[in-house]
Computed example of a mutant assay.
Amino acid sequence: MNKAFTIQYYLTILLLLATQQNVLSQSNTVIILFDENDTMQVKRSSQSPVKENLENDVLYQFHLKKFSEHSTQHILRFRYSKYADFDDKFANKQVLYLKVSKSFLRKNKDIIITKRQLDEMGYEQAIESFKNASKILLIDKSDFTKKHLIIKELLFSYPNIE
């Protein structure tokens, strides 16, 4: 119960700091709304050896819009796992996984990043924002119930640099 109060308090403070235009630059926490389709994909690991050790691995991918016919498609990847790493598993320190009322979405719409906003932001700016974020939280529409939604902490998978 204390953990839920702390998270609610933290998110309330974020609301006070955030504006609709510069959410990422004003806050170290990013909240992303995920709705699976052909440009937003989820891959759940079922046979991975990592699953035995980190549990519940899920890869979330955002395919950002191409801005010209010569540009390459950019993909942002995030990973959800019950534990951030093996040390956290050993210490039983789980990442944030919080069940909240659906009203959270309506009340916090100004600080929640959508796919459209990621496209407008562009790949490079999105990468910088996620690298600088202290926490990246995700709301997956497939986790919605009649009255609740789940907020879960993600780990950003840095792109390969060639």
Rank of each mutant, 00 (worst) to 15 (best):
S142Y: 09
K135L: 13
R44M: 07
K146M: 11
L105M: 10
I151T: 03
F62R: 02
E120W: 05
S25F: 04
L11K: 02
V58G: 02
A4E: 12
L59E: 13
E124D: 12
D87I: 14
H63I: 05
D35F: 05
H74F: 04
F62P: 00
R116L: 06
S45M: 12
I113D: 00
L76F: 01
S48K: 03
Q21Y: 11
V30P: 01
K51C: 14
S27A: 07
H148E: 08
S81C: 10
H70T: 14
T6A: 14
D35G: 10
Y60R: 02
D143K: 05
K131D: 10
A18H: 00
H74N: 12
L105Q: 03
K115T: 11
Y10H: 11
F62G: 01
S81L: 06
S25I: 10
L138V: 02
N56I: 01
N37Q: 06
K99S: 09
L33D: 13
L76Y: 02
S71R: 08
S25M: 05
L149S: 01
D57P: 12
A18V: 08
F90D: 13
L59V: 04
N53T: 10
K89P: 02
Q20N: 06
T114S: 13
I127W: 02
F67D: 14
I32S: 01
I7N: 12
I7D: 09
K146N: 12
K141R: 12
V23E: 08
Y9P: 02
Y123I: 05
Y10V: 03
H63A: 08
S71M: 11
P49S: 07
V30W: 01
K107Q: 14
K51W: 06
K65D: 01
Y158K: 15
L17R: 15
S142H: 11
Q21C: 07
I139T: 01
M1V: 09
L105H: 02
E55H: 11
Q47R: 09
F34G: 00
N22A: 08
Q73I: 09
T114G: 02
V42M: 13
P159N: 06
L154C: 09
D57E: 15
R79L: 09
H74E: 14
E120N: 10
H70P: 01
L64C: 04
T29N: 00
R106C: 03
S142C: 09
Q26F: 07
Q94Y: 01
A4H: 13
K89E: 10
R79D: 08
H63V: 04
I13N: 09
N160D: 15
V58A: 03
T19E: 12
D140V: 07
V50Q: 13
T39S: 11
A91V: 07
R106V: 13
K99C: 07
Q47P: 01
E124R: 14
T72K: 10
I75L: 04
K107N: 14
I136V: 03
S25P: 02
K65S: 03
F90W: 13
D88E: 12
T72D: 09
K3V: 10
E162Y: 15
N92H: 08
L105G: 03
K102R: 15
T114H: 04
N37K: 00
S129E: 08
Y60V: 00
Q21R: 13
N28M: 14
S68P: 06
R44E: 07
I139G: 00
Y123H: 09
S71I: 05
T12W: 14
K99F: 00
D57Y: 10
N132A: 15
S81K: 08
Q125K: 15
E55G: 06
K115F: 06
A18Q: 03
V30K: 05
I13H: 13
